[in-house]
Nucleic acid binder design. Structure first.
Length: 468
RNA sequence: GGCGGAGUAGCCAAGUGGGAAGGCCGAGGUCUGCAAAACCUCUACGAGUGGGUUCGACUCCCACCUCCGCCUCCA
């Protein structure tokens, strides 16, 4: 069964085929953060979705070359560094570092390239130069350079907007009067006083690149003129991705992107996330409230990317419970597998269940379906474990299946090893229990708990589980 | 006004022209010194509303209602 994705461009499910003639390498470009603040969970929804995409493609045998850019120069970063009176690079570095730390917390696999816009200004200038040469870019009275939309009739096709029908909104303000056409977007912004010392030299005078050209330049510089998949949030479709297409294709003459994937917005407790509504959360805010990275990952990843995601604390609690169930199951299967290294053949029901996890993801990353398969597998194997139908070899095979599934989900609990002290307490407690010294047993249980472990008495003896 | 997305149990949510997945919560049970945990079982005669097509509609068509997004630098 082929992998299919919903291409924003065609608004249809399309079979995925890489440009690579060998059908192996996949070029993936994902719009990254603007590093002017800590990223919020809405941002991370997109990055977690892209991570699921990358991991699933890899599980399907593709070699993914991914680029995620860092926008480290734009209006907001400039405003931020000016307010603090620090250099732009110093201002953004703090948020770059935080961003990578957050990606780690959410177990997002690292892209091969994290280009920073400020390292690619030369490439941006070169692209603009070509556009000027082709008479597609022009310099306006304000010294800035703009993209001449009349030269790119395709503009609007991704968003399915008819430019002639665009309703003038309040967001088109009067300061755009220098442009030939209100829709023409900036390629190069001429320096002005508000920019402080943030400026680069160019053939058209000092200034800085426009936002859209940043992505075009970094994408084509690192991945070449043709990209398999380009991702972002739905709000990037217009105008950002539309502009990327216009710029890149005007320069290279090639189809910029084969497949566009956009994830829907995230809401918090049914409301649009906003600072004024008091429901604006960075990842750090949630960690402070005691939630873990993988719980947040679970909550973000388990709703299909094309659906608006309502992020709630109930949802986080549900994620915690569901993860606990998975953890118990993994521990139980691993326990039964023991030291068995060579897996036996699984009963076919289990094997098909594991495969179904992946085939569900093949259909536009149907994560809900796939999670259903996983929980079916969990229930079925738990039942079989209860009735003693699973030997060590079969357990080892199931465990292998889980490892494959987890290579996509990245939701397995971190390995914890109990300290010698905890182990000693556990042993002493067994002695106390054998002698029916219940008070002593309970005291030791509390002592173990104080070290962060929960001891459970099972038929096979005491089991230690880390708290959380 | 234009374009697009979505309404399925208390919450999240999947698939499907013919038996309504799965998760969380809840109830019952098994286990247990107790507890906790875990595991098992159960939980929508009904799919925003009203029509239509059909032997049969949650699924297809039409209308309406509600919510959400984009409409020129928000993931």
């Amino acid at each position: 069964m082929p992998t299919r994705f919903f291409n924003t461009y065609s608004r249809q499910l399309e079979e995925f085929r890489p440009i690579d003639p060998a059908g192996k390498r996949v070029k993936l470009y994902t719009c990254g953060p603007t590093v002017y603040n800590f990223a919020h969970i809405g941002n991370f929804r997109a990055y977690v979705f892209e991570d699921l995409l990358q991991r699933h493609l890899e599980a399907r045998g593709f070699e993914v070359e991914r680029v995620m850019n860092l926008t480290d120069v734009d209006d907001k970063t400039i405003r931020g560094c000016r307010q603090l009176g620090v250099r732009l690079a110093d201002f953004t570095q703090k948020f770059k570092d935080a961003f990578f730390e957050d990606l780690g917390t959410l177990r997002v696999k690292r892209a091969q390239h994290f280009p920073a816009a400020t390292d690619y200004v030369a490439q941006m200038i070169e692209m603009i130069r070509v556009l000027v040469e082709k008479d597609i870019a022009y310099q306006a009275e304000d010294k800035s350079l703009y993209f001449r939309l009349s030269k790119f009739p395709e503009y609007g096709k991704l968003a399915h907007l008819n430019l002639d029908e665009l309703r003038p909104s309040g967001r088109i303000t009067s300061d755009e009067y220098e442009k030939e056409n209100v829709g023409d977007f900036a390629l190069w912004k001429a320096w002005d006083e508000d920019d402080g010392d943030v400026k680069w030299d160019s053939p058209w005078g000092p200034g800085r690149p426009g936002w859209h050209i940043e992505c075009s330049a970094m994408a084509t510089a690192l991945l070449g003129p043709e990209i398999d998949i380009h991702c972002g949030g739905v709000d990037n479709i217009f105008p950002h991705h539309e502009a990327e297409i216009a710029q890149s294709e005007s320069v290279t003459g090639k189809k910029f992107v084969n497949c566009w994937l956009h994830c829907a917005h995230l809401m918090v407790e049914g409301q649009k996330m906003s600072k004024s509504a008091g429901n604006f959360y960075t990842l750090r805010d949630l960690l402070e409230k005691g939630w873990t990275g993988r719980e947040i990952r679970y909550a973000l990843i388990t709703v299909n990317y094309r659906l608006p995601l309502n992020f709630t604390f109930d949802g986080l609690a549900a994620a915690r419970s569901a993860l606990g169930r998975i953890d118990e199951w993994v521990a139980r299967v691993a326990d039964r597998a023991g030291s068995a290294i060579l897996p036996d053949d699984m009963p076919t029901d289990f094997a098909t269940g594991i495969e179904a996890f992946f085939t569900d993801l093949d259909e536009d990353l149907n994560i809900s379906g796939a999670m259903g398969r996983l929980f079916d597998l969990i229930r079925d194997t738990n039942r079989a474990l209860d009735s003693g139908e699973i030997n060590a070899g079969i357990a080892a095979a199931i465990l292998e299946g889980w490892k494959r599934i987890n290579s996509v989900l990245a939701l397995e609990r971190e390995a914890h090893t109990p300290s010698p002290e905890v182990l000693a307490h556990t042993e002493q407690r067994q002695v106390a229990r054998a002698n029916k010294l219940w008070a002593e047993s309970d005291r030791l249980r509390d002592a173990i708990a104080a070290h962060g472990w929960i001891v459970k008495d099972t038929k096979e003896g005491p089991k230690l589980t880390p708290k959380q």
